[in-house]
Design a protein around this nucleic acid. Structure first.
Lengths: 233, 233, 233, 233
DNA sequence: TATGAATGAGTCTTCATTCAT
DNA sequence: CATGAATGAAGACTCATTCAT
């Protein structure tokens, strides 16, 4: 009877731990490797689960099962559910921060930004690349973060984006005093918001490249005309 | 004796009902009033709670306490939590439906819609009025409906709005064949989405009337120029 | 405003009660009628509801709605839910009691009872009539009484039926000493149980008259042969 | 130094797992045992509770208390109340399935089945054994499963039993063309039903072995005579 | 008698997190 | 570090019955 208690899987575990014993004087590098694997597995499983059900309705148990990591063991790698979410989104949020910094870099300031296709295209392409690389993460961040610390990320990011916009226009005024810089912060805010809505739209619909291209040309035509009018250039 | 059929308590009731007859022109406070009060109290308390915590994190017990209605008694008036939410939002959703119908009315179709200030102003003012009257409800609907049957209301409404836009442009093309009507549905979709973002922005920020006015003039300048350009008129 | 409180239905009620006032010296017979009507309505509605969902899952609220009697008013006519059930089944249980008495009547005792078709047919027909008249009630009693005071009715009735059977055989032995009367009570019990199973079967399946006739002839052939063998006649 | 990787706690764990290796032939009580115990405890407590009050009126809290397992912890072992019920009855339902299969096995088909004592005795004994081993479970299944997914088990099983009976008689007709095989399905149905009534009777009454024996001989005498008559053999 | 309002104990189930080993 | 076990507070909803008028 007792014999049957040791199933093959147990043997595997036992051997794993047995290895720990005999590697006392060795480098034992497999432990670290193991650890990274576990983190990765959890993050992969969590990403999937979050995408399926959103943060709040995602279930630690399910993540544990999917990742094949013991439920409580997860807590050795992550403080809590929210931290997993943060790490899942880290690649995206890093990129967003980069973009924000660059966008706000004084040396990039030129009147052409709003009114020339070339500059708008550059801006758009940066985000397009972001969308291609982080479609799922953007989905998470925009539509499935309820209950997490990113719940208000979009708002906050829009605010920062807006502030950057304000500074941008101020600096533009210095360089090109003849333009109309009397643009309300709230208008800029809605423009930022618009922009993120668009990203959200692209991310949550499966669009062909043609549709995206067509849209971009429409968007630019519309936007450029709008900005020209409003800045009186 | 027949008299005995009418016990004193019967008399009480009879009088009560008799009163009903003769109080036609009075306030008749003894009827229905109470029931309506309870519904109202629950709706008020629920609205508050929903605004504070959003639908999902709102708690029936809290609503019961706030409204001073017994928890289980609430279920004599509403099927479930979701139904309370629906009723809280009913005034708003009715208005939205009305707007949608009117907006899509063929007789309102004119090229001026997109390009003339007058028509845009009318459209904007309709929504502005909505915002003024239903600020809280819009907040609920846009930002705090997670977990309710209105979870995807904004998406769905945007879709309907977009479809209305598509039909609109088709009809316009019939009337004004020289315009460019080759506008992608997705572009219209983002325009609808933009519009609801703006409403969301207004609703979730406390804006002075001046700020709103300024914004509207900017928005119209921007939008009119954009549409003119894109429709080649 | 106040005027609108008095809807036509209220008027009806008011008039009804007003009538009460003015009939002080009359016979006022409509009250008694009303009362009987209410009981009847409740019983009809309850029967339906019980048949649909069984006793336990039936809902006083639903019964109230169906019968158009105020929920709490029902308690003026019935002590509780169980009493409604009892009254719904009263016609059936009365019949069953009658049958039980008659079946146990000494003057009906004859050896032919078990072995002659004529007598068996009589017995069967009595129950068949019962089934035809009280199909629904039998269904309630046999399959949907969980949670009520009739929960164990079938058991109890089977017991009584069995006891009657025992007495019957005792008396038969007196009249016909040569038969084998050494039949275990438990066997009789299972025979009673069988019999009620059969009733249950008939009641819960929709059977054509032919199927029933065919069955009865089979049943009698089978049973008569069995009894003859076991009583050694 | 590599040594430092192995902290004292690791040593403890390592030893524990190392033990697993060397305890292959021992009882290895430190593994799995606990978990199995909990399941067992819950099942025992639930069985008791179900037997006392029936499925529907059984209370998860009580089961938790009786089993000394935390209420919510139970849900780590069972999906819901119904699953507990299923597992409590699993041993019985497995046996019943086995019997059904065997009963319907073509090679067991012979005219003696209905008319010879030997074959009937075998059949009866199989069920008798079942009754002895699973008295309580049968009680649960037959009389206390209201509200569970086994609510209609008896009906369904009777149906299957009946169908098996029909096939049986068809096959018999092939082997013994001279018998009367014109037996209505409904009659067979009532016979199955009878049979399960009998099981129910035995299970719910405490019977001595003698009573059972006596009953069986009566039952066989009765039944054999009946079948002979009806099949005209 | 009739009514609408109210009750309150009760139901099963969920889940992120922590504990002991 | 890994594991299975455990926790405990919280969740929405039900329903026969009683109360006040």
């Amino acid at each position: 009877m007792g014999y049957t208690y040791l199933k093959s899987q147990h043997l595997g575990i036992a051997i794993k731990y047995f290895n720990m014993l005999i590697c006392i004087n060795e480098h034992c590098s497999f432990m670290q490797i193991q650890k990274d694997d576990i983190k990765k597995n959890v993050l992969i499983a969590a990403r999937e689960e979050f995408l399926n059900k959103g943060f709040k309705d995602s279930n630690m148990r399910t993540i544990a099962k999917k990742s094949k990591v013991g439920l409580s063991n997860i807590y050795n790698y992550f403080k809590d559910k929210n931290e997993i979410f943060i790490e899942v989104l880290a690649p995206l949020t890093n990129e967003l921060d980069k973009l924000m910094l660059e966008h706000n870099n004084p040396k990039n300031i030129t009147i052409d930004y709003f009114t020339s296709d070339k500059h708008q295209i550059k801006h758009i392409n940066q985000y397009l690349e972001l969308i291609i690389n982080y479609k799922d993460e953007l989905n998470l961040l925009f539509f499935k973060s309820y209950g997490s610390s990113f719940e208000n990320f979009r708002d906050e990011y829009t605010d920062r984006h807006t502030k950057a916009g304000v500074e941008y226009i101020d600096k533009m005024k210095e360089k090109y005093p003849y333009i109309n810089s009397d643009i309300s912060e709230f208008f800029l805010h809605t423009m930022s918001s618009w922009w993120f809505s668009i990203i959200g739209e692209i991310v949550s619909h499966d669009l062909s490249n043609e549709v995206i291209k067509k849209f971009i040309s429409e968007f630019m035509e519309f936007g450029t005309a709008g900005w020209k009018k409003i800045m009186k250039v």
